[in-house]
């Protein structure tokens, strides 16, 4: 177990970071090159002002018509995504690890907060899962991969909470936590979690087309 743990927090960790960063850059580069090769005209229409206008509206809860139409979903979506990003970055245990490895540190979240945020992520996953089952238009377009993504996202948080409270076998769940976290990182460039990379781009493009060419709002 110790061996495995060392492996997971050592080489595997760095490997997964490398895959995450490298894979993400690769995905973005690939998209950029594809655009340059076949749809070079897209760049003509990109406008910083209207990209930001569009992104600005869509990253603020209730700032768009569609966010307002779905208040519960909007709250869950924003709480989920924020928690998903904040928790791993500011968890005390993670900050300490960074400090130990690279001698860099930043303020950490109190553990209680981290637990709350983790529970929000887990609850979000449950919400999305139920939504996929019960909302017909979502069920219609849901495929197995969507559940896999939900599972991948929930796993590090579920295992993290279990490990934190030392339910079951701490060492096992710590290990599972590390591995599932790494799996999530690795999954970013290779599953539809890459919407995290592409969303700003598709938004920027639509925002630019709507704003600069069509003189219309897109929210």
């Amino acid at each position: 177990m110790n061996e495995l743990y060392r492996l997971a927090t050592g080489p595997l960790l760095w490997a997964s970071f490398a895959v995450f960063v490298g894979g993400s850059l690769f995905r973005l580069l690939e998209l950029f090159l594809l655009a340059r090769r076949r749809e070079r005209f897209l760049f003509t229409y990109l406008s910083l002002r209207y990209s930001l206008r569009s992104i600005g509206h869509w990253i603020v809860p209730f700032a768009t018509v569609n966010w307002r139409r779905h208040p519960v979903l909007t709250i869950v979506t924003f709480a989920f995504h924020l928690s998903l990003l904040i928790t791993p970055l500011f968890l005390l245990a993670h900050v300490v690890l960074w400090d130990e490895a690279w001698n860099v540190s930043w303020p950490a979240l109190p553990d209680a907060w981290a637990i709350v945020l983790s529970l929000i992520v887990i609850a979000g996953c449950v919400f999305f899962f139920v939504r996929r089952r019960v909302t017909p238009e979502v069920a219609y377009v849901t495929s197995a991969s969507d559940y896999v993504i939900l599972g991948l996202t929930a796993a590090p948080f579920v295992t993290g909470v279990i490990a934190y409270y030392q339910w079951f076998d701490v060492r096992l769940f710590t290990l599972l936590h590390v591995v599932s976290g790494e799996a999530l990182l690795v999954a970013v460039p290779f599953t539809r979690i890459r919407h995290m990379l592409f969303a700003p781009l598709t938004r920027a493009y639509m925002g630019s087309e709507f704003g600069a060419v069509r003189h219309a709002r897109d929210w």
């Binding site: 749809e39 897209l42 569609n66 979502v138 598709t202 493009y205």
Partner: peptide, 27 residues
């Protein structure tokens, strides 16, 4: 041959959330 980054980004980014549904008068 004829499509490129847009198609790829749209297909890869769509999270199958169905939020576009209520936009459509057909739906």
């Amino acid at each position: 041959g004829e499509t490129g980054a847009r198609l790829k980004a749209y297909v890869d980014t769509c999270i199958h959330c169905g939020l576009c549904s209520e936009a459509c008068h057909f739906f």
